[in-house]
């Protein structure tokens, strides 16, 4: 297996006030390039914490995290920020678009950290919006878009810099079933046709069926891996 994500004996502890809570306990995990993994588990099982470690938003208390061959668990804040810009595309449950920017400007945001010219940034943003089927909504602001459209813009933003890995935290948690299926179909297309590696947190078994593998977390431990034999389409 050509692993793009490797976690070895990862623990994560948080200190809140005088209390220290260990959220993840000795996680060992490998995710292959081109995989579409659904992280499943009940609330408080540590799904989002694990996703944050994979996405370089947080660092483990112990253990190592390597993504695309680079150890990220000991990078400084500024190097980790650069690394995220180069390797990770994020999709959030509540889209987290900038309300004052148009869809196109939102999609362009990650490209501001590159050396692309303004016209190249614009072209790339338009192309990303076309991939998610929203080329005609480029001039619209988030409050002029439906939930599904806003999430598509967020996916376009995650894709635009051609990241190594797409990290999605409950991407359909705020959407109705039919719109959620559209978004999951889109992610599936990105995985199958564009070869994007995707790690998605979800508590929705139907959403997890769109992934190629399901990882089950409970009380901070990986308790099982399931290969989805026939993924939803």
């Amino acid at each position: 297996m050509n692993a793009i994500v490797t976690l070895q004996n990862v623990t994560k502890r948080y200190t809140r006030g005088k209390q220290t809570v260990e959220v993840l306990h000795g996680i060992d995990l490998e995710i292959a390039q081109g995989d579409f993994v659904a992280l499943m588990g009940p609330s408080g099982s540590g799904k989002t914490t694990l996703l944050n470690l994979i996405g370089g938003l947080d660092q483990p208390s112990t253990g190592s995290v390597a993504v695309a061959g680079e150890r990220i668990d000991s990078l400084s804040g500024s190097r980790l920020a650069k690394w995220r810009a180069r390797h990770i595309g994020f999709v959030f449950q509540f889209y987290n678009l900038m309300p004052m920017l148009t869809a196109q400007r939102n999609v362009e945001l990650p490209l501001l950290l590159t050396s692309l010219s303004a016209s190249q940034r614009k072209r790339n943003a338009e192309a990303a919006l076309a991939v998610v089927g929203l080329a005609e909504r480029a001039r619209h602001k988030p409050n002029e878009l439906s939930g599904g459209q806003a999430q598509r813009v967020a996916i376009a933003r995650a894709l635009v810099a051609d990241p190594t890995l797409l990290v999605c935290d409950e991407p359909t948690g705020d959407l109705d079933r039919s719109t959620a299926d559209e978004i999951l179909n889109l992610l599936q297309v990105l995985n199958r046709e564009h070869g994007k590696t995707i790690v998605m947190v979800t508590h929705d078994p139907k959403a997890a069926e769109f992934a190629t593998h399901q990882l089950h977390l409970d009380k901070g431990k990986l308790v099982g891996t399931t290969a989805t034999s026939t993924t939803a389409a």
Binding site: G55, A81, R84, F90, M98
Partner: peptide
């Protein structure tokens, strides 16, 4: 605060 956190998530450094 959430918007600034998103910028940081996208790779904007603390200094930026």
């Amino acid at each position: 605060v959430p918007e600034l956190a998103v910028l940081k998530t996208l790779g904007f450094s603390d200094a930026r």
